[in-house]
Design a binder for these strands. Structure first.
Lengths: 183, 183
DNA sequence: TAGATTGTTAATCGATTAACAATC
DNA sequence: TAGATTGTTAATCGATTAACAATC
């Protein structure tokens, strides 16, 4: 809407664009504050700012990448993170052959130094691109070191304390979500 | 459970492992049939077979990949599809420089021939790894050609008819789902 | 002032859970 | 036969929607 040059919107328009009812929009927003004006609606830039603040995407997050194989390399080379508030600051692998080499401009560090690094630099988010068989043990180390969120590229289900958030990137799972509907 | 050598399970055990109530397990399964035995529970291999059939993941699905840039190359080289019932059979790009070359063992074909190919081969699922700016126009062509499900790697929101299913792979979106909970 | 739209309360709807007859 | 667990109905819970006073 900002790109379209619009200044004000309403719960009705937001609902229409998002496929929700206007009541849902107002109810959800009201959980976090009063962002609109009666009779007028919502100022779009103000609302966007508030939403970014609420979701904590109004800052730059540092990320540790674990795993420098094919998948890790693809992730490290992906250019879409920085623009959208995320920055890989460290890359780790366990393979002595890889340690010291570079991928995507990052030096590959030894996982042995990972826990201490993460504690020191207070990195909160990690991306996991290790083989499925290693994912749980690496996760345990990350959690122990104070990581609070993990984006996991391995096709496994990780066990973590409730306080740690996990999201998975598994293209096959996404495909499987759709086959049911395909005839 | 199969790997663990177990033969029979119950709605209670399934619920426990999945973080759901036993009633939820029974209710959901009963939507599709009667898979258990009173007093005994569910035969695990039989249940798994039935679930695969219901979800249509008991077959090999052919997939068209559109876009042979960095992302497309990574997708084409990803070895995890075939084992899990998906096979890329065609790769397309619009760049004359790329057409005829190979990525991940696939010859890159001209998008100009895509619609006719898809109609002829009856491919139902496509993966989209084109620049965000091209995603909608390519999607329109795919839908027109009869594609029923699209896995989109571009960070955009695609407009498609209700009958077409879409799933997105956007690591930044996944990261943004977690920042709210990170302190 | 009249019209429009918010934030919120009350009503409705649908999903989850509890309970139990059926039966292995 | 006694114990266990299913599939399903009824009860409960929570989420969505409708309605409206407040007010810009």
């Amino acid at each position: 809407m900002i790109a379209e040059g619009k200044v004000i919107t309403s719960s009705q328009e937001l609902g229409q664009r998002l496929g929700l009812s206007s009541a849902q929009i107002r109810k959800d927003l009201s959980q976090f504050g009063e962002f609109g004006k009666q009779g007028t609606g919502y100022n779009i830039t103000f609302l966007a700012e508030q939403l970014r603040r609420i979701l904590k995407v109004d800052q730059l997050w540092n990320i540790a990448l674990v795993g420098a194989g094919d998948l890790g390399r693809a992730v490290a080379n992906y250019g879409g993170f920085f623009d959208r508030g995320f920055r890989i600051t460290k890359v780790y692998d366990i393979d002595p052959q890889k340690i010291g080499q570079r991928i995507g401009g990052f030096i590959i560090h030894d996982v042995a130094s990972m826990a201490a690094d993460i504690r020191k630099t207070k990195i909160k988010i990690a991306m996991l691109a290790v083989p499925a068989a290693d994912a749980q043990s690496v996760t345990d180390k990350l959690v122990e070191a104070g990581i609070q969120a993990i984006l996991c590229y391995a096709p496994v289900s990780l066990k973590v304390p409730e306080s740690v958030k996990i999201q998975y990137i598994d293209p096959v799972l996404r495909l499987q979500h759709m086959t049911y509907y395909v005839s």
